[in-house]
């Protein structure tokens, strides 16, 4: 280990303020230089001084309690600030990731009226078994792939068992934003002769179907 690394190794182990650490580093450097000028070799000096851990330990043992206290307080403050920063960062990430809801009335992307009309239209088309119209007209590319004939057939079975369509009994709309994407969610309950079906339909910002759920 050369003298620069030796001194660095000592000062990084010191339990005192940064100012004092720098001071000790400078003094050790000049002491080593003085020893070399007096004819000692670097090997002699490092052997006399001892291992950097032992030198630092001796410094720490003899350092005044007030200095140690200052160092510990400073370290606690640093750790506290780091933890607080990390917490703020974590909260910011969670805030960004978590979906946030908003009212469609105040939305600049969606029209409450259009969203409700399209939802009713899709429910009508489902009732009339015009699945290809839903798939081709109202769905985005991903939904077109997902809404296969089999999926529609299963949905058809669920709806058919409820009897013929009567009317819409309740509508609930909400906007959702997550990671820069905005969605409009409509929950519409339709009354059929034998029972009711609650549809949860989601539109993307292009007013294309991006979710269809019925219960």
């Amino acid at each position: 280990m050369n003298r620069e690394n030796y001194v660095k190794d000592v000062i990084k182990r010191l339990e005192c303020s940064k100012k004092r650490r720098v001071e000790i580093g400078k003094e050790l450097q000049t002491d080593i230089q003085s020893a070399l000028e007096q004819g000692e070799t670097w090997e002699d000096v490092s052997l006399r001084m001892g291992h950097p851990a032992a030198v630092a330990s001796e410094f720490n043992e003899n350092t005044a309690e007030t200095e140690k206290k200052k160092y510990k307080t400073g370290r606690r403050v640093k750790v506290g600030l780091f933890a607080a920063g990390l917490l703020v960062l974590l909260c910011a990430v969670i805030y960004l990731i978590l979906p946030k809801t908003f009212s469609l009335d105040k939305s600049k992307v969606f029209s409450q009226k259009e969203v409700t009309q399209q939802t009713e239209q899709i429910i009508m088309l489902l009732d009339q078994e015009k699945y290809s119209v839903i798939r081709d007209t109202y769905s985005d590319k991903r939904m077109q792939k997902a809404l296969t004939d089999t999926v529609f057939q299963k949905a058809e079975q669920a709806v058919k068992h409820t009897g013929s369509y009567s009317k819409i009994t309740s509508v609930y709309t909400v906007g959702m934003s997550q990671m820069g994407h905005q969605l409009a969610v409509v929950q519409m309950t339709a009354l059929y002769r034998n029972s009711t079906v609650t549809y949860t339909i989601t539109f993307n910002s292009n007013m294309k179907l991006s979710g269809l759920y019925m219960k």
């Binding site: 004092r20 000790i24 003094e27 050790l28 002491d31 006399r48 001084m49 001892g50 032992a54 030198v55 630092a56 330990s57 001796e58 410094f59 043992e61 003899n62 350092t63 005044a64 200095e67």
Partner: peptide, 12 residues
């Protein structure tokens, strides 16, 4: 004395 003993004395 070693440096680790002398310098803390001088600082005190």
């Amino acid at each position: 004395l070693k440096e680790g003993t002398l310098y803390p004395i001088l600082y005190r």
